[in-house]
Design a protein around this nucleic acid. Structure first.
Length: 492
RNA sequence: GAGCCAUUAGCUCAGUCGGUAGAGCACCGGACUUUUAAUCCGGGUGUCCCGCGUUCGAAUCGCGGAUGGCUCACCA
């Protein structure tokens, strides 16, 4: 009802009404306003790049009309295709009166196919002198301001199609995103990793601390969770005998939305049997450096005005040492109570029943994380906050885990995988206790995963990379929404 | 979830002290056969985010709401 009213109101808008009447006129003239298959010989950018050899030759191109400069019996127009823009020169003498009139009555936004001759104007502009022109799609809505484009961020995200038409740098970001993911695939495939797909509809949402989305399967009449991480499935594959696997895909977390968080986001999880955290750190450095080199052209990149040097090797620092350095507090070997006391002294807000591990995290987040600009691996997380990571040989309270930080963001997470089913079951039990205490993000018990480990999982290193943040970093984008084609928005 | 800010024409934005709204682009009509933010002449196309209130009178002031942005909280 509301929507119908909205539509009726829009029908009244003069600009829309004019386009509709032009559409009607086309039908009445026997012209199909929505065209058909059209064979091209060139992209706009091809013509510009190879002008010297193409000058004087015929070409057939297609795209969207982005501007008109009419001069009576001759006109200029800019045609935009996926490669870029090229100027069209329309001349009544070349096209004939009827075709010329038809062309000049088109609108900005219309999609056309043209054939013509490649030439350069007096002013040096590479152009196509149009001989024939065919309407391939009538545009019924006006495009945003040709100079200012579309700036309203709300509209840019909601109507990304318009954003992509008028803001070419946006297209560039998503081209890079595609290239980054392609590079990552190639890199892993070349090293013998195989790409797999595991379920996104889970009966147990495992592999991470996060609140899941719940959905419902009608035929089975049962609730299912959208996955929060593929980890436990991928490790089952190590049990099954795949040595090197990875999965690139969406995870869904029912949590807050911010410039760094979208409810659905893309991760790449990588597992390597017979390896450990150390191998995965090396792999992380190599991946970041390789992709930066391929996509940006250097391992030194600029993010929001600061130069970031991704060249390996990256420094490594145990978390407790980092806290000692930046907060001036040594938390090594404290009891829960002692840790809580220290937190109080440093005016850190922690829950009454906070555990040692949680307090270490708190200190880290407060004092260390905001200072980590250049790439660094923070290692040796507490066992309490790392329920899937193997304990360190020399200290069972810590794990053989690492998180690389760049521009204060955690860009990945990896560890030597816990392959001891007895310890894993114990860790799950601890998590269940946390869950019972009201921690909705604590891990769920996954008995089948324990069963898998009981068959024997080779020692392994695992790594999860946040693809969106990697893309943000390499495209100099301050918000995750700038690297998601359709970021989550509340419906209007 | 909390705080701050924003919302005016299709787009980008002005709008003074409270007196029913304006520019550029786009659009419509006209001139113009090498322009490129083409130019020149003419035309303003509107639920001022929504609702309630104050007032003779609200885009403007107050309250409530919607959406978005930023910061914080949670998280990757």
């Amino acid at each position: 009802m509301e929507e119908q009213l909205e539509e009726q109101r829009e029908e009244l808008n003069e600009l829309l009404a004019i386009r509709r009447s032009k559409l009607q006129a086309l039908y009445e003239a026997g012209i199909d306003p929505f065209g058909e298959k059209f064979e091209r010989t060139h992209y706009a950018q091809d013509i510009i790049d190879n002008f010297d050899s193409l000058e004087g030759q015929k070409t057939v191109i297609a795209g969207r009309l982005m501007s008109f400069r009419t001069h009576g019996k001759a006109s200029f127009s800019d045609l935009m295709d996926s490669s870029g823009r090229i100027q069209l020169y329309l001349r009544i003498d070349t096209m004939g009166e009827e075709a010329y009139r038809f062309a000049t009555e088109l609108d900005i936004g219309d999609i056309v196919g043209v054939s013509g001759t490649i030439f350069r104007t007096k002013r040096g502009q590479i152009s196509v002198e149009v001989e024939t022109l065919k309407l391939l799609a009538k545009s019924l809505r006006p495009l945003p301001d040709k100079w200012h484009g579309l700036k309203d961020v709300d509209l840019r995200y909601r109507q990304r199609y318009v954003d992509l038409i008028v803001n070419p740098e946006v297209r560039e970001v998503f081209r890079k995103r595609s290239k980054i993911i392609q590079c990552l695939r190639e890199f892993l495939n070349e090293r013998g990793f195989i790409e797999v797909e595991t379920p996104m509809l889970n009966t147990i949402a495992g592999g991470a601390n996060a609140r899941p989305f719940v959905t419902h399967h009608n035929a089975l009449d049962m609730d299912l969770y959208m996955r929060i991480a593929p980890e436990l499935y991928l490790k089952r594959l190590l049990v099954g005998g795949f040595d090197k696997v990875y999965e690139i895909g969406k995870n869904f977390r029912n949590e807050g939305i911010s410039t760094k968080h979208n409810p659905e986001y893309t991760s790449c999880e990588i597992y390597q049997a017979y390896g450990d955290a150390n191998d995965m750190m090396k792999l992380t450095e190599e991946i970041f450096a390789h992709i930066a080199q391929e996509v940006v052209g250097s391992t030194k990149i600029v993010f929001q005005g600061q130069e970031i040097d991704l060249t390996p090797p990256w420094p490594r620092k145990p978390m407790l040492e980092a806290i000692r350095e930046y907060a001036g507090v040594d938390l090594t070997g404290l009891t829960d109570e002692q840790a809580r006391q220290l937190a109080k002294e440093k005016r850190l807000a922690v829950p009454e029943n906070a555990t040692y591990g949680q307090i270490v995290e708190e200190f880290f987040d407060e004092f260390v994380e905001p200072r980590l600009i250049q790439p660094i691996f923070i290692t040796d997380h507490t066992v309490e906050v790392s329920p899937l990571a193997k304990r360190k040989k020399d200290n069972p309270n810590l794990t053989d885990r690492f998180e690389p930080f760049i521009v204060t963001w955690e860009v990945a997470n990896g560890f030597t995988e816990l392959n001891d089913p007895i310890d894993q079951e114990e860790r799950f039990r601890k998590q269940m206790e946390q869950r019972d205490k009201g921690d909705e993000e604590a891990h769920m018990m996954d008995s089948d995963f324990i069963r898998a480990l009981e068959y024997g999982m080779p020692p392994a290193g695992g790594l999860g990379i946040g693809i969106d943040r990697l893309v943000m970093l390499l495209t100099d984008s301050p918000s995750i929404r700038d690297v998601l084609l359709f970021p989550h928005m509340r419906p209007r």
